[in-house]
Each structure stands twice: as structure tokens, then as C-alpha cells.
């Protein structure tokens, strides 16, 4: 699924990396615990999270995940956006909850 489609399904605002929306992700991971992401993520290309700090961006870089979706209308700081921009990570923000965000993407076929 292309990231542009992810943004559409989640009615998300793209905060940085709009030039990379043609990237394709085959699965996603929803977590507020970066320790778990570092331990269990394999080839999920998208991280959905309600946690907002710079370590979220660094964690996705380490895991080669190209996109972060902040749920529940969370907005990252300018510093985080600059960090993401620098390493080419797409950041989106959706008003939806974690549960509904994951549900919508799963129903649309992501990770199935």
C-alpha cells in the first residue's frame, strides 16, 4: 500500500516527507513502547504511535521504517519534524485513535 493511500484512509495530515508518499509499505506496527518496536519489528514500514518524542523518529530510522503516524491528533515538535526531514522519514498526524487507525489499515488490506 502506498503511503498516500495510508494518509487518505487515516484522514491524516502529512507534516513532512510529502515527496515520499509513493513509498510502499506491506505492514505496520502500532505501539507506544519503543523497546518493543526495537525488539519485535521485522519489515513493517509504518509505525503508528501516541508517543511523541525524538526517540520515536530515531527508533524508526534504526528499524528502517519510513513512516510515522501520530494518532489521537498528537503533533510532533519542530525539532522532531526537522530530524525526520533530515533522515527522510514521512510524518503524518491523524485525529483517529490508535485502535481505529490500525483497524482501518488492516481492513484495507495492510499486513493481511
Amino acid at each position: 500500500m502506498e503511503l498516500s493511500q495510508v494518509a487518505e484512509i487515516l484522514e491524516a495530515k502529512v507534516l513532512t516527507g510529502s515527496e515520499h508518499l509513493d513509498r510502499v509499505a506491506h505492514a505496520a506496527c502500532g505501539s507506544d513502547m519503543m523497546s518493543d518496536v526495537l525488539a519485535f519489528v521485522k519489515d513493517q514500514g509504518i509505525l503508528l504511535t501516541g508517543l511523541v518524542n525524538s526517540q520515536v523518529i530515531r527508533t524508526t530510522l534504526m528499524m528502517d521504517m519510513g513512516c510515522v503516524v501520530f494518532v489521537r491528533g498528537k503533533t510532533p515538535s519542530e525539532e522532531m519534524i526537522a530530524l525526520a526531514e533530515n533522515i527522510g522519514t514521512v510524518i503524518m498526524s491523524t485525529q483517529l485513535t490508535m485502535y481505529e487507525s490500525c483497524g482501518r489499515l488492516y481492513l484495507a488490506g495492510l499486513g493481511r
Partner: peptide
């Protein structure tokens, strides 16, 4: 609260 401290750090480094 910052998303770390799940007790996976050292095992992960080993893995």
C-alpha cells in the same frame, strides 16, 4: 513514559 525500560535492551543487543 518515554517509551523505554521494557527490559528488552540487553537481550536485544545480544540478539
Amino acid at each position: 513514559a518515554l517509551g523505554f525500560g521494557a527490559g528488552m535492551g540487553l537481550p536485544n543487543m545480544k540478539n
